[in-house]
Computed example of a mutant assay.
Amino acid sequence: MASAPQTQGLPLFYNDLQPLSSELHANYKIRRADAAPFMARQHAVPLTVEEFPLVQRFMPIVFSVGDDPVPLALMGLNEGVNVFFDAEGRLRDQAQAFYVPAYVRRYPYMLARLRPDAEELSLCFDPNSETIGEFEDGEPLFADGKPTELVQQVLKFNEDFEIAGQKTTAFVKELKDLGLLMDGEVSIAPDGAEQPYIYRGFQMIDENKLNEMRGDQLRKIVQNGMLPLIYAHLFSLGLMREIFARQLDQGAVAPLQPAA
């Protein structure tokens, strides 16, 4: 169900990366997009821990499977299904308050090392994006050979995202070290169904192990701020059924296979 972001090649959503240059991109502009086509069939999006309190109001928060788990916001329970964005990549309910994860808002930019041995990160962008290029309209990236205020804002956003990513990596490592992650499973039985829908392929906090924690371990997760994040994740899992209901309304629930 919850696929992890790509671990080889370019990150999720990115088709190419180029470093932003005042020489090569002196005439480039940024124009605002009213849709994100890459979201139309994306069912899970990476999160940072700082987003947990906001995301848990709208989407289930789970962890990807594998040796290096990543927190994910679920926008659908099946790959290729997104109950919040339509086929054109527009929010289905523009009037409803909704939190779009920072990973989505970061695209088409990201900080990256230009060489494997480079210490500094450089601001790069995906040249395949329709929001940046040599357009007649839009806001310029450079003025008199210097980055505009807009570029400075983009850079700051990406720097903050990198810091949040480091905190997230440390949080997940601590969960693993404490043995709090387990394989997840959710069973949903809609009215009239002969058997429940079973969803797997993700990890979640083992609530029994959490409740059994004592002494130094428990004190540690309280003092370092992990406990509220853990409960945000656990509370959000109740939204699995709401996501399922949305899929049902949108005709995006696969028919159940007969039991063997």
Rank of each mutant, 00 (worst) to 15 (best):
E130M: 11
F161I: 01
Q94I: 13
R200M: 10
F135G: 02
E139Y: 14
D160M: 06
L121M: 07
Q94D: 10
D177F: 00
V151P: 08
R92P: 09
Y197N: 05
A170Y: 01
K167C: 04
D137S: 14
A189K: 07
V154N: 08
D93E: 13
G145R: 10
E162F: 03
L111F: 04
Q152S: 14
S122C: 01
Y197F: 15
I188Y: 03
G138Q: 08
F135S: 04
Q195R: 15
I132A: 05
A189P: 00
D117Y: 04
Q94W: 07
F171C: 07
G165L: 02
T168M: 04
G165D: 09
E139H: 13
R115V: 06
D126L: 06
L111C: 03
F157A: 12
F161V: 02
L141G: 09
A112P: 03
Y197I: 08
A118I: 03
I198N: 06
A95K: 15
G145A: 09
L175D: 03
G165E: 12
A189R: 04
A143D: 13
A95D: 14
S129I: 08
G165V: 00
R106S: 13
C124V: 01
E136Y: 11
D144I: 01
Q153A: 14
R115I: 02
T168I: 03
D177T: 03
E185M: 11
V151I: 13
A193C: 01
T168L: 02
A164Y: 12
Q195D: 10
F135Q: 05
A118E: 08
R113D: 04
R200D: 10
L178N: 00
D144A: 12
N128V: 08
F135R: 03
A164G: 14
A164I: 06
Y107H: 02
Y103K: 02
L111I: 02
V154T: 14
I198F: 05
G201K: 11
V186N: 00
Q96L: 15
D183N: 10
T169E: 09
A97E: 14
R200V: 12
K176C: 01
I132T: 15
I163C: 02
M110Q: 08
G138A: 10
R115N: 11
D191I: 03
A112G: 00
L181M: 00
I163M: 08
R200C: 07
Q166G: 05
E120C: 00
R200Y: 06
E185A: 11
Q153H: 15
F135N: 02
E119A: 12
Y109N: 03
R92Q: 11
C124W: 01
D183V: 03
K146I: 00
Y103D: 02
K167P: 03
V100C: 09
E130N: 14
F157H: 12
E119C: 01
S129Y: 08
Q195N: 07
F161K: 04
P140D: 07
A193Q: 06
V186K: 04
D126Q: 08
D137H: 11
S122F: 01
D144S: 12
V100L: 11
L123S: 05
T131Q: 13
P108C: 06
E149G: 06
V104P: 08
R106Y: 00
L141H: 06
D93C: 06
